[in-house]
């Protein structure tokens, strides 16, 4: 399945980077404002699905660089990795840990295991949906 519409091509090329940036933005602000790993992952997959409709599954695989199922596995690994600090500290699984890194100016970068976990969710959702869509499209070709 591949579209030959010029409008779709152009739109996909312009919108996709914006969508991806927005998805990362949603991911990082998720702890304080509406957003988070699920929503970010869904927005990102929306971007890639749009690209896939415009340029086909082969091109999407190229632009993803990693196989969707590896993305999926990476997501699960991230989520599990977020349990390691608690494990090392001998606390119950998934106890949150926080680190604040000072940034230039008067701000801090909040780093935490929930954030790592959320990144894992993001990658897992993106991986899952891309697995569905790319494989289904390839099955049709």
């Amino acid at each position: 399945m591949k579209s030959n519409t010029l409008i779709l091509h152009t739109a996909a090329l312009f919108i996709m980077p914006l969508q991806l940036m927005f998805s990362v933005f949603l991911l990082f602000r998720g702890h304080d404002e509406p957003g988070g790993g699920f929503i970010g992952g869904l927005v990102a997959s929306g971007a890639f699905v749009l690209y896939a409709f415009a340029f086909g599954s082969e091109a999407t695989r190229r632009i993803l660089r990693v196989a969707p199922r590896d993305l999926l596995a990476a997501g699960l690994l991230f989520a599990i990795a977020s349990t390691i600090p608690a494990f090392l500290a001998g606390q119950p699984m998934l106890t949150a840990h926080w680190w604040e890194l000072p940034l230039p100016g008067n701000s801090y970068l909040k780093l935490s295991t929930p954030l790592i976990f959320d990144i894992g969710v993001y990658a897992a959702v993106l991986g899952t949906i891309m697995t569905f869509v790319i494989n289904l499209m390839e099955a049709d070709e």
Partner: peptide, 17 residues
């Protein structure tokens, strides 16, 4: 949990399992 979006805090912290 240092988070202001309670739904997200529940998802990734309180009930992360």
């Amino acid at each position: 949990a240092y988070g202001r979006n309670i739904v997200n805090v529940i998802l990734v912290d309180f009930r992360a399992l």
